[in-house]
Design a protein around this nucleic acid. Structure first.
Lengths: 251, 251
DNA sequence: CGCGCTTTTGAATATGTTCAACCTCAGTGG
DNA sequence: CCACTGAGGTTGAACATATTCAAAAGCGCG
């Protein structure tokens, strides 16, 4: 039931642009900064699911801002196996460092239908140069992204199947909550079980079994493009989920 | 047999500071820039193995520059399991973004004996502000670090045991080669099999079996703190190793 | 030498994969 | 309206891969 109207009110009821909500979590922004940021999403286009926004090998001239929907970074092995290495949620910017062009080492594609804005490198650089709050926000957002990738290494490297899946569900919940797309009760999620498998390093069959187990444990119900959280504390406990890696503390 | 003399000539015979060699790989540096960079390592101190340079929860005031030896980023789970999420080799800078202080989400510790310099945040910021080549080098180095972490997610998420270990050995070889600490024949490496296990998400026992297999396949011999490469092409083939993620191409 | 850490090996076990079948449901077209 | 279709989800059984446990051997160092 993802709404894709021109102006999409998120479940939290806020009309603020997700990128504004996201960066605000890293420190207050002035009204001017909020307006400038929101302007980035002005030309957002609707993009179908399973569509590549940036392809491996390309040298993109624009960054990609996800305004609505879910996209991911991924790569295929010669064998055909796919690994998803990050999710891009509303408010997330797929940067490219906004200084120098450089060759993409992986692809970025949508999962479900998205609304996405292309942001020219110069526009980003200008924003950062003029607004200290935005510069700071982007810096911390990038730091959070790095920490998240490390957390994923941890997840896939040393957690059991049920822990991995739980951790992923907790992370998505927390990140969507910040931008107003999740409530305590749950969130919409267009991922298939195969997507979850390609993220957690499990087989789709085993993901299915893990999800059933989580349902029987009355922790969370995943299905029909929807995640219903029955017992958040319990889910976080299994996952050993600590949200602090998502918000780099700065005193 | 790691040399730890005050001025350590690397096996490649170069006397250049590893950080100079590393950043030069991302674009030529002026003599002035090289000198300024090399100055960072001036006050390097010797640090024993298995020693924490930065601890989880701390808010460091200085970055850490590894001049010699091997260190790593790691974290422990409550269960005691450890995951290594990155290696810091000679020339690597454990930054902290050199702008804002922020809380460490993981620890950084030495593996074997190291020579390490603490670099105050301001010194780094000054260097970057004054020297375009250094700024560019750091930017690309950071990009390479991010790509490397994603590559690790790939490694642990969807490769078999022998592929994971091979890939790690290839990556370390390539990175050490750039800074002059590896030859085609191999390199010194102070890691235990347990360290390899904590990196690849395997048990120490299984790492041992994989290493034996690689030895029997006449690809590489690991032991006695030394990695002897018998068939680099073969090892890279097993690992599907593509070094390009280590050097972000910029036309 | 003796101690502690690392490496090595075997056997039993756990965990997750593969393969193949079947089910469900939404969308499509007769 | 219903049959058809295809993608995604579910299930069982056989299997592969890696873990755990336990014991012994090697090695560096005081």
């Amino acid at each position: 039931m993802t709404t894709l109207a021109p102006v999409a009110p998120s479940p939290g009821g806020h009309l603020l642009h997700p990128v504004v909500r996201k960066l605000s979590a890293y420190g207050a922004l002035t009204g001017q900064e909020q307006a400038a940021l929101a302007g980035l999403g002005a030309g957002a286009q609707r993009v179908e699911g399973r569509f590549d926004l940036l392809s491996e090998g390309a040298v993109p001239e624009s960054a990609v801002l996800v305004v609505e929907g879910v996209a991911c970074r991924y790569r295929h092995r010669p064998s055909g196996a796919r690994q998803i290495t990050a999710y891009l949620l509303p408010g997330d910017l797929c940067d490219l460092d906004f200084v120098h062009p450089c060759r993409m080492n992986h692809s970025v594609g949508t999962i479900g239908t998205c609304r996405v804005a292309r942001v020219p490198r110069e526009a980003l650089a200008g924003l950062v140069a003029r607004h200290a709050g935005i510069a700071r926000g982007f810096r911390l957002a990038k730091l959070a992204e790095e920490e998240t990738t490390r957390e994923w290494v941890m997840n896939v490297g040393c957690r059991s199947a049920i822990e991995r899946v739980s951790h992923l569900l907790c992370e998505l919940h927390e990140r969507l909550r910040v931008v107003g797309w999740a409530t305590k009760a749950g969130y919409d999620l267009p991922l298939t079980q195969q997507d979850l498998a390609d993220t957690t390093g499990l087989s789709n069959v085993h993901v299915n079994r893990v999800l059933r187990q989580l349902r029987l444990m009355r922790l969370v119900e995943v299905g029909g493009k929807r995640v219903d959280i029955l017992n958040l504390a319990g889910l976080q406990a299994i996952a050993e989920f600590q949200a602090d890696y998502l918000r780099p503390a700065v005193d």
